[in-house]
Amino acid sequence: MNLQSRKSDVPCLVKVEPENGIYTLRTFDTSGRNFSDGHELLAWVKRNWEPIQFLNPHEYMELLHAVTQELGDSE
């Protein structure tokens, strides 16, 4: 999922693929982060990002919901 931030022209990217063990994201400064599991990624997002940081704050909430759903399907 891509989220357009207020801080960068390059969108933030969150990729969660439990079947392939991929849990990554691209942050506002375009650096990447890898996580050992989706729960770790979700905790990082909640700790470091806020809806107001994005052009469409609703997309942030959609991201949280989508990742939670994806993790629920993999458990």
Results as ranks from 00 to 15, higher is better:
46 K>M: 03
18 P>Y: 10
1 M>G: 09
41 L>D: 00
52 I>F: 15
34 N>R: 15
18 P>D: 14
37 D>L: 06
5 S>R: 05
62 E>Y: 05
60 Y>S: 02
72 G>M: 07
17 E>F: 09
9 D>S: 09
6 R>V: 15
58 H>V: 14
5 S>K: 06
29 D>P: 11
39 H>P: 15
15 K>R: 12
11 P>F: 00
14 V>Y: 00
73 D>F: 12
65 H>A: 15
49 W>R: 02
33 R>A: 06
29 D>M: 13
62 E>G: 09
56 N>G: 09
47 R>H: 05
14 V>L: 00
26 R>D: 05
61 M>R: 13
1 M>R: 04
74 S>V: 06
48 N>T: 09
70 E>L: 10
20 N>V: 14
64 L>Y: 03
10 V>N: 01
2 N>R: 15
7 K>S: 06
58 H>E: 14
47 R>Q: 06
30 T>C: 09
51 P>K: 11
50 E>V: 13
54 F>E: 01
21 G>S: 08
27 T>H: 07
13 L>H: 09
42 L>G: 00
66 A>V: 14
41 L>E: 06
30 T>R: 09
48 N>M: 05
63 L>W: 01
55 L>E: 02
35 F>G: 03
55 L>S: 04
6 R>Y: 09
29 D>Y: 02
59 E>T: 15
7 K>T: 05
3 L>S: 01
69 Q>D: 09
75 E>I: 10
29 D>L: 10
39 H>C: 12
4 Q>D: 10
64 L>V: 03
18 P>V: 07
68 T>F: 07
5 S>G: 13
62 E>K: 06
14 V>P: 01
54 F>G: 05
72 G>I: 03
67 V>T: 01
31 S>E: 15
4 Q>E: 09
44 W>S: 01
30 T>H: 01
65 H>N: 11
41 L>T: 04
